[in-house]
Structure formats: C-alpha cells, structure tokens
Amino acid sequence: MDLSTPPPDLYGRPRADTFFRFLTAFGDRYTPALGSPLLRRNPRRPYSRPTEALQLVVTARRQVAADVVELTLADPSGGPLPAWQPGAHLRLTLPSGRERHYSLCGDPADRADRADRADRADQAERSGYRIAVRRLPDGGGGSAEIHDTLHPGIRLAARRPRNGFAFCAEPAVLFLAGGIGITPLLPMVREARRNGLDWHLVHTGRSADTLPFAAELRALDPARVHLRTDDEHGGPPTGAELLAPAPRGAAVYCCGPAPMLTAVQRALDASPAASLHFERFGAAPVTDGEPFTVRLGADGPELPVPADRSALDVLREARPDLPYSCKQGFCGTCEVRLLAGTPDHRDRRLTPERRADGALLPCVSRAAAGETLVLDV
C-alpha cells in the first residue's frame, strides 16, 4: 500500500481528489452548453452498467478453530479475481439462496502468478479469496449451511469485494479482535507489518481453541501479538485493558461483539489512543426508537414494532422467508417497498431517488411514534 495515497473506495479503487471529482462532475453535467438537456452528460463517459456477479468455486476447506472453518474460493476457470483492500467483504449467495456477508481474511498482495512481473503493482488481480465462518447455533441458518454443505467443488455466486471498514495505514495502530472478529483485521495486520508501521494486536476469546489463526498471527511477530483468553484471566478484558498496548496517538481498529465495542468506546478518551474505527458483528441495539406499526399490504395484518426492536425482526416473525444479511443498513438484502406512511430512513445505501420511489430497508429504518408504515412484503 502506498501510504501517500488516500484510502480506497468501497470497491477497492483509489479515491480521487474531492475537489477534482466535484469539478469533473460539474463539467460532465454542464459542458459544453449550459442548460441544454441534450448536453447534460459527457458523451465520452460510458453509461454505467450493473456489475456482473462473480462465479466462484470452493477449492479448499480447513478447520481454523472450534466451530470455525476457513474456505478458499477461486474462479472456476482458474482466472484472476478482482482486487480488494484490507477490511473488504464478500456478499455470497449460498446454494439455498441466502445472502450473507463475510470478511476477506487472506492477503491482498496474493496476486495471481504472471509471466510479466515487471508491472505487478499495476495489476488488480487475485488468485483466490479466503473467508472464515463461525457456526452460530442461534443464527439465521447461513453459518450452519456453510459448515454443513460447502465443500471443495461447490460453486457460489458473489458480489465483487466491497469495503466499508477501510484501513487508513496510520503510523501507529492498535488492532482489537474478539473471536471471529479477527477476519477483517488479519489483512490489516499484514499490511501494517509490510509497511513498517508501529502496530500491536490483541485477540480475545473464551478459550485458546476458539481463537482462529492463532499460529498464523504469532508467526507475524510474537512480540506484537497478544492472545488473551477469558478462561485464563477470569473473564473478558475491560476497555482499559484492551487499550493499554496502544502507542501514543494510535488509531484503533476494533471488530468484535457489542460488549467489547462498548467497553472500548467508553475507555478511549482515557487511553493513549487518538481515534477508533470499528465494525460490528451485527446491528447496533436500538436506543432511540419509538414504537410504531407496520402493515403487510393495504389490507393485511398490522404488526406493532416496539421501541427497542427493528421492523425487520418483527416482519420476519410473520414472514420467516424475508431475506436479510447485514442488519446494519448497507447491504440492501432486506429491501421492501413502502406503499404508505412516513418513514425515518436510517440506512447507508439508498439514494434519495430510491427512497422517493418507495424503497425501504426495515433492518434500520423506523417511523415516528404512532406512525403506520404500509409495506409490500
């Protein structure tokens, strides 16, 4: 990674300078003749087309911790795969039709072998993707399906890698991982080591057998990797204990269960660290909601949504087959159509135009107290 460049965009592409991006967009829309509807768009810029799904095949499977399997996914024809940056995830379509997001935990620098190595830095290709999945007995079935049915030879469809947890490669970094939360952080650790940053990692879990990639992490740098288990220390660490190894002014990258994130957030100001970047396992708890109602169709049943629950959770009790994935308002899997009512959109995906057309993500979107949202589900 070139530390002089800004972090990549969601698809791993370098971000353009903000001013010139605005200037280019303005010129594309208004030149060469302001106001002419026929010339609002630069004819030299091709129309964007939907990105085709990737076709992948499972090429390897191994157990990396108790109830955690790692899968290696590759192009069925052996061709290269799109590039990605640390923190990126894949949106997989499983054989059942379920869609789930999984962080890529391999090495972004693992390029496909090429005859011409002189221009490797310019090649945006990979020979395989690695993901690791913990079985969740009380989950929605995606992890169980992966553990029970995905073996070498099984084919899957996936969206191109996307990144909502970008690594900015600050000079001093502390990585905090809780259990399977190591998956987005492992590529960041490799990148930090490759670029000579001042980095440290704390990986926590219930016991040693629950920590994925423990041997791989120790091999990176035993002096900078601390594996901490609850059974050896009498319980989970406090936020202050987790942040204690942070170098002065460090950026903290954290991925783990909600109690861990809460503890780190509360202890940050009193620690040597300067900033916090984090990714959640699931949706944040609803703390500022009001009770409202959703109606299934114009004449369907009405379902009350309590102040502390999401509309998606309530809808799935009535429609168990309603698809979902991230539960955080960025993947779009649970999208439904709004027929009536005034929603409070809280997602990070839908454009104003999509919202005006009636699109709604019930995993995070809500309504005012007493409001009724009529949904086409």
Rank of each mutant, 00 (worst) to 15 (best):
residue 120 R to T: 04
residue 137 P to A: 13
residue 124 A to M: 13
residue 133 V to Q: 04
residue 114 R to D: 11
residue 123 Q to N: 09
residue 152 P to G: 05
residue 114 R to V: 12
residue 122 D to S: 06
residue 117 R to T: 15
residue 129 Y to N: 00
residue 124 A to H: 15
residue 125 E to Q: 12
residue 130 R to L: 08
residue 142 G to P: 00
residue 147 H to S: 03
residue 125 E to F: 07
residue 153 G to H: 05
residue 153 G to D: 03
residue 150 L to I: 06
residue 152 P to R: 14
residue 153 G to M: 10
residue 143 S to E: 01
residue 125 E to L: 11
residue 121 A to R: 15
residue 138 D to S: 10
residue 142 G to E: 00
residue 121 A to G: 14
residue 137 P to M: 14
residue 139 G to H: 14
residue 132 A to Y: 03
residue 149 T to R: 14
residue 139 G to E: 14
residue 125 E to V: 06
residue 119 D to T: 13
residue 152 P to C: 12
residue 142 G to N: 00
residue 120 R to H: 01
residue 142 G to C: 02
residue 137 P to L: 15
residue 121 A to M: 09
residue 130 R to V: 01
residue 149 T to D: 10
residue 152 P to H: 11
residue 118 A to F: 07
residue 126 R to M: 06
residue 149 T to G: 03
residue 145 E to P: 04
residue 132 A to L: 10
residue 115 A to V: 09
residue 144 A to W: 02
residue 125 E to T: 09
residue 125 E to P: 01
residue 147 H to P: 01
residue 139 G to A: 11
residue 135 R to Q: 07
residue 146 I to H: 01
residue 148 D to W: 01
residue 119 D to W: 08
residue 139 G to N: 12
residue 146 I to V: 15
residue 146 I to K: 02
residue 117 R to Y: 04
residue 133 V to R: 03
residue 127 S to E: 09
residue 146 I to P: 00
residue 145 E to D: 11
residue 147 H to V: 10
residue 131 I to F: 09
residue 117 R to A: 13
residue 142 G to A: 03
residue 124 A to D: 08
residue 131 I to K: 03
residue 124 A to Q: 07
residue 153 G to T: 13
residue 152 P to D: 15
residue 117 R to D: 04
residue 144 A to M: 01
residue 145 E to G: 04
residue 151 H to G: 07
residue 153 G to W: 04
residue 127 S to F: 03
residue 124 A to C: 11
residue 122 D to V: 06
residue 138 D to E: 15
residue 114 R to S: 14
residue 141 G to N: 05
residue 120 R to D: 08
residue 140 G to I: 07
residue 114 R to G: 09
residue 134 R to W: 02
residue 132 A to M: 09
residue 130 R to F: 06
residue 114 R to I: 06
residue 143 S to V: 07
residue 150 L to Y: 02
residue 124 A to W: 15
residue 140 G to C: 02
residue 144 A to Y: 00
residue 146 I to Q: 01
residue 153 G to N: 03
residue 150 L to E: 02
residue 129 Y to R: 01
residue 122 D to T: 12
residue 131 I to Y: 03
residue 119 D to S: 12
residue 141 G to Q: 08
residue 131 I to A: 05
residue 121 A to Q: 15
residue 137 P to E: 14
residue 119 D to N: 12
residue 127 S to T: 00
residue 153 G to V: 05
residue 146 I to F: 03
residue 142 G to Q: 01
residue 139 G to M: 09
residue 141 G to I: 08
residue 116 D to H: 13
residue 150 L to G: 00
residue 130 R to K: 13
residue 135 R to N: 14
residue 151 H to Q: 13
residue 124 A to K: 07
residue 152 P to N: 14
residue 144 A to Q: 01
residue 131 I to P: 00
residue 135 R to P: 05
residue 130 R to C: 02
residue 131 I to H: 05
residue 118 A to L: 14
residue 143 S to G: 07
residue 145 E to Q: 08
residue 126 R to D: 03
residue 130 R to D: 02
residue 133 V to T: 09
residue 118 A to Q: 11
residue 115 A to R: 12
residue 118 A to V: 08
residue 152 P to Y: 06
residue 117 R to L: 09
residue 134 R to Q: 15
residue 141 G to V: 04
residue 136 L to D: 09
